[in-house]
């Protein structure tokens, strides 16, 4: 070992000596809650999006969830309201680096467009894929629309991405 604490070994040897590989597959089954169940039911059957509206302050949350953070009150499926599949781009990026997707265990394909937008009539912002990999073609304030799959399955994959639209 030299003074800087480095062993002078070939890269291959160093890995053999100093590392053990551990590949644990740790599976989970997450409860998604009644509001999300309703969301995916309606998405599949009616091709519509639902948010949740706080019964106290009226804030419309998208994605829908069970608790309004401002009021600390419960929202139920009765508080779900339809929101249009259109909104306005608030921020964007193009992911251009490799990483392992924890859902699949494989590499997530890149580059891909990824954006923050506000659906019309909602009071929160939301994130999703954007069907655009060239950042010069994106601009904050552009209108976006959800793209639905032909055959709906009742999961987030039914909305593979949002696309930039021009409105008359």
């Amino acid at each position: 070992m030299n003074l800087r604490g480095e062993y002078k070994l070939a890269k291959k040897d160093r890995e053999d000596i100093f590392e053990i590989r551990w590949k644990t597959d740790l599976p989970y089954k997450y409860s998604i809650g009644k509001l999300s169940v309703k969301f995916f039911e309606v998405l599949k059957k009616e091709r519509k999006l639902l948010g949740s509206k706080c019964p106290e302050c009226g804030k419309v949350h998208f994605p829908p969830r069970g608790v309004c953070a401002e009021c600390v009150v419960k929202m139920t499926v009765d508080d779900m309201v339809e929101v249009p599949p259109r909104g306005t781009l608030v921020g964007f990026t193009v992911i251009n680096y490799p990483f392992v997707d924890p859902q699949t265990g494989g590499m997530r394909p890149f580059p891909y467009g990824y954006a923050l937008f506000q659906l019309d009539g909602t009071d929160t912002y939301t994130m999703h894929f954007l069907d655009e990999k060239d950042h010069t073609k994106m601009e904050i304030g552009q209108r976006v629309e959800a793209v639905f799959k032909d055959e709906m399955e009742g999961n987030l994959g039914d909305i593979p991405y949002f696309k930039i639209i021009k409105e008359g």
Binding site: Y30, S31, I32, G33, K34, S36, R65, G66, V67, V72, K74
Partner: peptide, 16 residues
């Protein structure tokens, strides 16, 4: 198994 509750909803029950 409280399959109908997310962790957040579960915690909210006791907080409320």
């Amino acid at each position: 198994q409280k399959i109908d509750l997310t962790i957040s909803e579960l915690v909210f029950e006791v907080v409320k």
